[in-house]
């Protein structure tokens, strides 16, 4: 058994855990919020440790994920409010921020948030010309012109560019 003496005063709050980001920031999170992450839930089931170190999630991203978990663990909020929180949560975020978020949700196995963020990332790519996607995400086209033409020929139906956007 872990006692409060060994672990310091923070563990005195029985239903909380401390999560530490890769850059050392610590967040106090209610256990009911933490267990919405399948990975954290497993860790908490396996050991009694109240301090979880996440070696590949930075503090900004972790703060966002925790805000999400805490909101969704709040029984006082209606499903509608949670849904509008989700919308607000991803709106206006840069693709790069979304990318770290989606990676974090993948690591932490927060399925709902992973879907929400992936949906937002897909919305950014939706109806865009290939050239736009390459430019926006800095993807190097390493096809020869012949190889590219051949692939476009294979799925010719997907290349009607009339309704696509380039900005």
């Amino acid at each position: 058994m872990v006692t409060t003496d060994e672990k310091g005063p923070l563990t005195a709050k029985k239903k909380s855990v401390i999560i530490r980001s890769c850059d050392g920031d610590e967040f106090l999170v209610s256990e009911s919020a933490a267990v919405l992450s399948t990975s954290l839930k497993k860790i908490l089931e396996e050991k009694e440790d109240r301090l979880i170190h996440l070696s590949d999630i930075d503090n900004k991203t972790l703060a966002m994920v925790i805000a999400y978990l805490s909101t969704h663990a709040d029984d006082g909020l209606s499903d509608d409010l949670k849904r509008s929180f989700d919308q607000e949560f991803v709106s206006g975020k840069e693709f790069d921020v979304l990318k770290y978020l989606v990676l974090a949700t993948d690591t932490l196995q927060v399925t709902c948030l992973c879907y929400t963020v992936a949906k937002k990332m897909a919305d950014i790519m939706k109806n865009k010309l290939v050239e736009w996607v390459r430019r926006e995400f800095d993807i190097q086209n390493d096809y020869t012109p012949e190889a590219e033409a051949e692939i476009r020929r294979l799925d010719a139906w997907a290349w009607d560019d009339r309704q696509l956007e380039d900005d």
Partner: peptide, 18 residues
């Protein structure tokens, strides 16, 4: 996860990105 949220056409088009 991302590709599954695109339309099939947009998803197929990613095949020429690189």
């Amino acid at each position: 996860n991302i590709l599954a949220r695109l339309s099939l056409r947009d998803a197929v088009r990613t095949s020429v990105l690189s």
